[in-house]
Design a protein around this nucleic acid. Structure first.
Length: 321
DNA sequence: ACAATACCTCGTGT
DNA sequence: AACACGAGGTATT
């Protein structure tokens, strides 16, 4: 069982050693690894004086052995814990991971449901029971995904990294790598941001980011998107510059708890045309907004309430072939 | 509603 | 070595 965090899903993680993923989540720097059904983690503490983590004192560039394994042991969705009276730091950290990896969701049930409804899913992804959707921070998700259209993922990764370094608060420094929080919306809304991001190689996306941030700051509806229905959230996001159907659906799916949101990108469309002959849009030349809706409806009808998750799993399985 | 076009940048391929 | 190509779409016409 190997932990792997897809670079499209989140650009904040990188594999610093084999099977060990280091990144920022919830304002803290983590290193994660997995053995069997157990997720092991280490949280770096910010030093009082120099802003460097204590973890820095560990051997440079090697796997970080988690200390106090008995304390930091983290069991997945295997057993329920009793409600704590007072929340300890360890309990808080475990809850953050449980939330981020959505470990309360029983993937077995979902896989059975998808496989039963769709023989092709069963054939391609029936065994990929370990793949699950992250529950990302909406702000980080939105502004990262805005960078992806008409772009290469490798470049997006560098862009996001530079944006965090330039505009996010520093957290700690490990082995010459400084980790920063994702920039706040207000930091991204500043008038100087467009020029700054252009200097960092963002091209025309620099304006989208600054303008979207300014609009979010101005209108205030962004924070409430998790608690309103999918279609309302999607349409609200569509009003932001640089946010089309694909980006809106990605943000809905990956950060706003809209499990039914199905982002249609060029790869998904190829798969749909090849493997789902009864799907709409077979004679279509390109992905129009209507086709995006129709294909989404088709997959929601096929897979049910977690269609977006099913699509992500199927695509992940596709990549492994 | 759909098709055509430009778009920043920067690996890669020729 | 120079140059065209296109990338997990979007905005505009």
């Amino acid at each position: 069982m190997t932990l792997c965090i897809d670079t499209f899903s989140s650009h904040s993680w990188r594999e610093t050693a084999e099977g060990h993923w280091t990144g920022v989540m919830g304002g803290r720097v983590w290193t994660l690894t997995q053995t069997d059904d157990t997720l092991w983690y280490h949280v770096y503490q910010r030093s009082d004086r120099q802003g460097e983590a204590r973890g820095r004192k560990r051997r440079a560039g090697v796997p970080l052995q988690v200390e106090n394994k008995s304390k930091k042991r983290f069991k997945g969705a295997l057993k329920k814990e009793e409600e704590p009276v007072a929340v300890t730091p360890v309990q808080e950290e475990e809850e953050m991971l449980r939330d981020y990896f959505q470990l309360n969701v029983d993937m077995g049930d979902l896989y059975n449901k998808w496989g039963a409804a769709d023989p092709h899913f069963q054939h391609i992804a029936g065994n990929f029971t370990g793949v699950r959707m992250l529950r990302q921070d909406p702000t980080e998700c939105l502004f990262s995904i805005i960078c992806t259209p008409n772009n290469k993922l490798s470049r997006v990764h560098g862009m996001v990294e530079r944006m965090c370094q330039a505009l996010g608060d520093p957290l700690c420094k490990l082995d010459e790598t400084s980790y920063h929080n994702f920039p706040s919306v207000s930091a991204l809304a500043d008038n100087s941001v467009e020029a700054r991001l252009k200097d960092l190689g963002f091209g025309y996306r620099a304006r989208f980011i600054q303008q979207s941030a300014a609009k979010i700051l101005d209108t205030q509806w962004f924070e409430g998107l998790r608690s309103i229905p999918y279609l309302q959230a999607r349409d609200a996001l569509r009003a932001l510059p640089g946010v089309g159907p694909k980006v809106a659906n990605c943000v809905c799916l990956m950060s706003l708890d809209k499990t039914e949101a199905v982002p249609i990108d060029t790869h998904v469309w190829q798969i749909a045309k090849r493997d789902y002959s009864d799907a709409p849009g077979n004679g279509q030349k390109s992905i129009t907004e209507k086709l995006h809706r129709d294909l989404g409806d088709f997959f929601r009808n096929l897979w049910g309430s977690h269609a977006g998750w099913a699509q992500a799993v199927l695509f992940c399985a596709e990549l492994q072939r």
